[in-house]
Simulated scan of single mutants.
Amino acid sequence: MSTIDTGLAPSPRSRCGSGFSHVAPALVLVALFFVAPVMALLLRSVTEPELGLQNYAQLLGTTTYVRIFLNTFLVAGVVTLVSVAIGYPVAWTLTVLPARWAQLVFAVILLSMWTNLLARTYAWMVLLQRTGVINKTLIGLGVIDQPLALVNNLVGVTIGMTYIMLPFVILPLVGVLRGIEPSILRAAALCGATKAQCFFRVLLPLSLPGIAAGALMVFVMALGYFVTPALLGGTANMMLAEMVAQFVQSLVNWGMGGAAAFVLLTVTLALYAVQLRLFGAGRMR
């Protein structure tokens, strides 16, 4: 028995209902495990110890807390710049390498991502300490006379976090660079462009979405990083995530901890909104 084709397309309402049923489980998970905890944190930040905005006023009006905020953005900015400066040449090298060698380098990068974060941080502590491998090698080669201070300062935090963040710059950049047609660069060269002009006027502008995506990912992750700055930076280079943990775990001050965490979340969402405004969701993907 043959079916009769009525020729009628499904109504927009039915399509909308079918699409919502597909994303409903994800929305429920986001609501339960993200929206609800954030709202609870926001509520505690304005109700403990009493109703009002005194936690935010104290957080943004105390010199010590403001210094921690500034240090957090300084570390995140430095790590982002260094990661992009190192990650871009690596991504370009992966783009032009033969497939076999590119797969090998990719495997090394992915292996570094899968290694335990705490183990990687402790490894850098061993390498960077005054009696570590790096200082001993430099002294043995006669480059320096005294060990360099590479831990418990901004240098150690930058080195450790850059190593961890590099894959998050390299991977999106490789995808963007591989999508650029080589014929565009050849056409620029045939028109008389030098190698520097091909890079700065052709390759770099076309790869900006990948740079922006990787830089935003690194910057946002660096703002909330805890383990590496705590072990390699020390108390003199405390970051916002360490302060939140101290408020909650040591001082049991959920009001101040919630206020600091909510300020960090607001800054993160604002940065993401600015990037979407500049590059658009389609180019970011």
Rank of each mutant, 00 (worst) to 15 (best):
F69A: 15
A9V: 07
L265G: 13
A24C: 05
G175I: 00
I144Q: 09
Q58S: 12
A273Y: 03
R67V: 01
G257R: 03
G214N: 04
V23I: 08
W124K: 11
A222I: 03
G156A: 09
S250T: 06
T158I: 08
A76D: 03
G52N: 12
P10G: 03
T158M: 15
V174H: 01
E48Q: 12
A193F: 03
T137M: 09
L204F: 08
A123K: 06
G160T: 02
L154M: 00
A123D: 06
F34V: 15
S83L: 02
W114D: 04
F20A: 14
T158K: 02
G257D: 02
L138R: 00
V105Y: 11
V169C: 10
A102W: 04
F219Y: 02
I164Q: 11
Y272D: 15
A212R: 07
V169Q: 11
R15E: 14
Q249M: 13
S250Y: 07
A230S: 14
V133D: 05
L59S: 10
L223I: 11
L204Y: 15
F33A: 04
S14T: 12
I170G: 04
L94D: 01
V227R: 03
L232Q: 02
V35K: 07
P172A: 10
F20E: 09
L51I: 00
A261W: 01
A102C: 11
L117R: 14
Q197F: 09
